[in-house]
Structure formats: C-alpha cells, structure tokens
Design a protein around this nucleic acid. Structure first.
Lengths: 186, 186
DNA sequence: CTTCTTTTTTACCATAGGGTAATTTTTGGC
DNA sequence: GCCAAAAATTACCCTATGGTAAAAAAGAAG
C-alpha cells in the first residue's frame, strides 16, 4: 500500500501512449474530489502521476470504511468493476490535488500485448498487490490494533500528514475512539 | 479460496509440458503430509491436480494460523519465497491425498512467454486472488465472526468435511473455543 | 478575529471474543 | 471393540474494542 511499483513506470506508459497512438487521457482532481462512487462503473485503471487517493466503501450502516491508500506512482482501480463487470462499491477520493493517467481496458490490453517488459511489470504489480493483502490479513490475525497502528506509523509516516485519523482508524479496522485511546496510551 | 480458476487448466499445462519439453514433475502427498515448511525455500508454483491443501503459518506463540485452503484445480505457492526470494514462513499440509504438478520459476516463465492465452489466464488468476483477499479484508472489517462463519458454511460447505474446526477457527481469525460458542448459538 | 463545522478526544458502560483449564466426544491404531 | 490421542466443547473470568454521548480541539469560511 502507498507503495510505488517501481517496474510499472509513468515514463514507460507515456512512451507507449505515443508509440501505439493510444490517446491516453489525463485528469486532475482537487483535494476532496470524489472521482469514483458506488454504483458508477469503473472504466479505468488509474495511474497516479501525482497525488494521494483514499479508497473506501460503505458498510451496512453507511459508515465509511477505508480500504486502501494510494500515492504517487501507484495504480488503482475497482477490480470487481473493472475486471469482472460487477457492481462497483468503491469510492475514490483525492486527499490532495491529484493528477491521473487513465487507461481503459482496451488501452491496457494494447500495452500489455505489445510490451513484454510492461506485461511482466504488470504481473509483478498484481502479485505484489496480492502479497500486501496477504500480509495485511496475517497482521490482522496475529497483531493487536495497537501493534498494527505502530507498524503503520513506522512504515508510512507520511500517511499521517495526508489522511484523517478517522480514515486511518477504519483502515486499521477499529473505531476512531479506539484509535484515540491507543494513541493516548503511547 | 478453494476456488478453481477456470482459465488456468491442467490440460493446458500438460499440453505445454509436451510442446515445450518442460519436463514438469508431479508429486503425490499422503493425507497429513507437509510439503513445505517454514524456512524451506519454495521453489515451485503448485498446481493441485487432485486433493486438498491447507496453508498455514505460526504466530509468535507458535500457534498455527490457517491462511488459506486450496482445492483441486487451484494453484498455490509461497509468494514471498517464490517471487521475492524472501524467507518462507508458510507450511503446506495435504488434508487429503493430493496429486501435484510442480512448476519452477523458469518453467512458469517459459509457458507464460509462449502462450498468450495462458499468460492471460495467469494474470486473471493473480487478479482473482487479489480480489478474494480484498473481499476477505472487507469481510473482517464489516462482519462479526458469526457472520463470517455462516458465510463460509454457505459458500464452502465441503470445506467442513475436510478441515478441522481448529483450522477453520484460525482461518476466520478466532479461537476454537469462540467458534464452538458460535456454533452452539445457532 | 470570530463563528461554524469538522475532527479528535474523553468518559462511561456494554459486549464480542480471548485465555485457561477441565470435560466430553471423536478419531485412529491395534 | 478397546484404548490412546486428538479434537471439540463447556465453563469461568478477563480484556480489547465497540457504542453512545458529550466536550475539546482544530480547521475552514467569512
């Protein structure tokens, strides 16, 4: 999370954009903008050229649960919607001014079928993503909320400058009150 | 989990094995056999031709935490070890007699670079895996242990014939005692 | 600077699930 | 079928975290 995938680089994408005449579009979002909402089909794989994005969804009571944070040079999409055409449940919110490169399914396919190195980078990105999610499940199953919080501060200190504690609490799977209590005890 | 990935098929692998003279090896495991242990480097991507496998690791107190179950026609590996050469922490245990097809990194690469359709299936497998993990994190963050248990029974009833309740408890992130209490209340 | 809104903290009680230990049930080997 | 070992259940008390509500602090807008 919040990690750049060093092998899937903006410059390569932009090069392929020219070579293959893909006509990739870019988009700018202001801090606070939502650029994907529940029910909207997610037509793009987004490359974050610059910025910071929070991915969240709503639980049954309508509370926002932060699922993910994505920073400059990482990629996001709503996998259920983008890959499987299922109903999208994710919201994408720019937590700071954000510059995006948009790839449609066809454009992504075009790049991946043209460039073996990009294709490998993409596979690497998917595998890396799965490993991060695996680690997160392991962390939930073996560590207390306090341990997960301390690890998050250590590994992603910048996150705390960009996201609200409420966002971080739900990302950690606890309430803001619990996070506050944990912070007090340190 | 416990899901076959319909696009990555044994027959295709076996065909490529012949066409590319890969010399893929197979292996048979008896019920109860461990075929990967912590500290052993995981040299293979395993295709389960037939059988049922539990993937687990040990927490700090040495308790087994079930991370995953894999059934016939699915694939498993220890991603940290296989992809990133990090120390392996996973154990693979055959919960019933199991027949495996073993792919080394080179063999996998050979297949993926020769066959565009297999390569797409592989990408699909990785994406699918990430989606299942995402769903699992969402489930942990929005549902009680009881709800997760009921969902598991509903979606994977066969699992309960093959795995012990202890395995299922740690897979759900609770103790066997809690699982027992939950089962009693239903 | 002041006011309004949002975020964070605090406090208090409630509860889901954990830890220990003992008991019962099931399983597997002979 | 009998016995030992493993698995599952039960019971007890304990703790981390949740829920509600209110107060305090921080941030945004005029």
């Amino acid at each position: 999370m919040m990690k750049s995938y060093p092998y899937f680089r903006a410059e390569d994408l932009l090069q392929w954009n020219i070579n293959l005449r893909l006509d990739l579009s870019t988009d700018f979002k202001k801090r606070g903008d939502l650029f994907l909402e529940e029910g909207q089909h997610c037509d793009h794989f987004y490359y974050i050229l610059k910025g910071f994005v929070r991915v969240y969804y709503l639980d049954l009571e309508g509370k926002e649960i932060t699922h993910w944070f994505s920073a400059t040079d990482s990629m996001i999409t709503s996998p259920f919607s983008f890959f499987k055409k299922e109903k999208n449940i994710l919201y994408f919110e720019a937590l700071e001014d954000t510059e995006l490169l948009l790839l449609t399914h066809n454009q992504l396919d075009a790049i991946l079928s043209q460039s073996q190195s990009t294709e490998k980078a993409y596979r690497n990105l998917l595998a890396e993503f799965a490993m991060i999610l695996s680690r997160r499940i392991m962390s939930i199953h073996t560590e207390t909320a306090e341990e997960r919080y301390l690890k998050l501060i250590k590994e992603h200190p910048l996150l705390f400058q960009k996201a609200k504690l409420t966002h971080i609490a739900s990302f950690l799977g606890i309430t803001p009150q619990s996070l506050s209590r944990i912070r007090k005890n340190i």
